[in-house]
Design a protein around this nucleic acid. Structure first.
Length: 510
RNA sequence: GGUCCGUUCAUCUAAGGGUUAGGAUUCAAGAUUUUCAUUCUUGCCAUAGGGGUUCGAAUCCCCUACGGACUACCA
């Protein structure tokens, strides 16, 4: 009997998704789609103190931008709605009760202050306090309270939590689809809180209950969850759900490009690359963090780059569309070790995608940049310019740097190039060329180039000097595509005007 | 501190006991582009260390070192 593959991406709406989270979502998505399964989005907002307005919308918009399609979620709905844990609140207490009734959990009345005191006390003695088999009998809970004291406390509404009663000396063995066989001894685990005094479940309870209810078959999450896998397995057993328990896979972490540790929000700001898919404005501080989308990255290139962080197809192919990724993906080709994030390779990927996109697609993306510069030109012109300069760009917005001169006359001239090219006699030659250009009958790149070459050859001028000087006049420096293409596009009048302007304004280099 | 996970060029990684340890990015050099970028060619660069097992180890085992995660009424 094989169940339909169902996976979930379950972020907490405490802020923007960072690229590690996007990758987790992506791997879940690829895994599910490879097998024709479902990808669900579940919002884990059981901690109302950490709720950040806008985070949930951000998560959905980010997945949309990446091309990760959600089958069931808070926005999409589905047979297991609601998909927001805060809206499922009423569900969880009965499951906590079930565990208490079966002896797998108990009430605890210790206050946070008491526990803090125990912890700091233990620390000062060089030890660590844990709420577990050995300490719980000395603490304030339903296991130690005499007679019906517990009932009395509950009836009086004293704040309390529900804790999991971790069994003694049980070896929990499991197979992680990425890491293979792993095992833990329950003696190392503590009596985790399952249900908080505010009436909300903790992650541990909610995630197990929801994964079960939502018929999740595979849990694919970050490596930081590996230590809590035994607890989750024990919970499935306590509920009697072990038969349909999902398979677990723990993805390796994404590390900082330099130094140590996992990638965090700060790294992007300091090292000069985005760590978020979309720009994010912190509602508290107002600080804005840059995003891949706003920095001019293409979503498919971004996804391609992420897909190869920790996974490889086993072939030498490295350019993949989403469809190809779905086709090629499998968990057993996911590595075990953390991957250091390389912003340089991200740029390279973006360039690969830039040159693969059609000129019209790129032009559409570039138009907003143009408008921000106050440039309004026919779309056809934008398409043509993009086609000419995209090879030399890594990002869409670089089209401006590489081709602004198609839209406006250069405002200044590169001093280095001036001193190298604008020597004695050059302005005179340029003036002659301007005059010559005005006599041409047809104005198109090839039909300028031909007579132009003759004109220069006859005069025995140095071709390199002429071309580079002309380039300086037209673009203001030493860059850009073919000079005759530029002439054709900006037009005869503009070409001549720019030459005359340069002759008039650039002082001759000594 | 404890538990768990990990370790191949600078970076992402391939090689499921037998290869000159392969590819990609970065970097460097050359070619091409009468500029720049692209592109092409070439080059530099790795099995953390030590023990085993084996005819043979990057690959299996152990130890050490290093790195990381977790250790909340956060997820």
């Amino acid at each position: 009997m094989s169940r339909k593959i169902r996976v979930r991406f379950a972020p907490s709406p405490t802020g923007p998704l960072h690229i590690g989270g996007v990758r987790t979502a992506l791997f879940n998505y690829l895994f599910a789609k490879h097998q024709g399964g479902d990808f669900l989005l579940r919002i884990e907002d059981t901690d109302q103190t950490r709720y950040v307005p806008g985070a949930e919308a951000y998560i959905m918009e980010a997945l949309d931008w990446c091309g990760i399609k959600i089958d069931e979620g808070p926005r999409e709905g589905g047979p297991h709605a609601p998909y927001r844990q805060s809206e499922r609140k009423a569900l969880y207490s009965q499951f906590a009760q079930q565990l208490i009734d079966s002896g797998h959990a108990y009430y605890a009345f210790d206050t946070p202050e008491e526990l803090d005191a125990l912890r700091t006390n233990a620390e000062s003695g060089g030890e660590t306090f844990t709420y577990n088999t050995t300490t719980r009998l000395g603490l304030n809970n339903s296991l130690t309270l005499p007679g019906n004291a517990c009932e009395a406390l509950l009836a009086s509404g004293v704040p309390h939590v529900v804790r999991f009663k971790m069994p003694e000396n049980v070896v929990v063995e499991a197979t992680d689809l990425i890491r293979g066989h792993v095992q833990f001894n329950s003696d190392q685990l503590d009596d985790k809180v399952l249900f908080k005094s505010d009436g909300m479940p903790t992650y541990h309870l909610a995630n197990v209950v929801d994964d079960h209810l939502m018929e999740i078959t595979h849990v694919i999450r970050g490596e930081e969850w590996l230590p809590s896998m035994p607890l989750h397995i024990l919970l499935y057993r306590a509920f009697g759900w072990e038969v349909t328990m999902p398979e677990f896979s723990h993805l390796p972490l994404i590390l900082k490009p330099t130094g140590k540790g996992k990638l965090s929000k700060r790294d992007g700001d300091q090292l000069g690359f985005p760590v978020f898919p979309l720009a994010w404005k912190d509602p508290e501080s107002g600080d804005v963090s840059r995003g891949y989308r706003e920095d001019g990255y293409l979503p498919d290139g971004f996804i391609n780059m992420l897909s190869l962080l920790g996974w490889n197809p086993g072939t030498e192919q490295e350019i993949f569309s989403m469809e190809q990724l779905i086709e090629a993906f499998s968990l057993d080709r996911v590595g075990k070790s953390g991957s250091r994030f390389d912003p340089e390779k991200t740029k390279w990927f973006n360039h690969q995608y830039l040159i693969r996109h059609t000129d019209a697609e790129l032009a559409t993306l570039f138009v907003p940049f143009l408008q921000s510069k106050g440039v309004e030109v026919p779309f056809e012109l934008v398409v043509r310019v993009v086609g000419l300069v995209k090879e030399r760009c890594h990002f869409v917005n670089e089209v401006w740097e590489q081709g602004f001169f198609f839209f406006q006359s250069p405002a200044s001239y590169d001093e280095k190039i001036v001193s190298k090219r604008w020597k004695e006699g050059v302005p005179g030659m340029m003036a002659e060329i301007a005059g010559f250009l005005s006599t041409l009958e047809v104005w198109s790149a090839p039909q300028i180039k031909e007579p132009f070459s003759q004109f220069v050859t006859v005069r025995e001028w140095n071709f390199g000097t002429i071309m580079n000087s002309l380039r300086l006049c037209l673009v203001g420096g030493s860059f850009g595509p073919d000079i005759f293409e530029i002439c054709e596009i900006i037009g005869r009048a503009e070409t001549i005007a720019r030459i005359e302007k340069a002759v008039k304004n650039i002082p001759v280099a000594l």
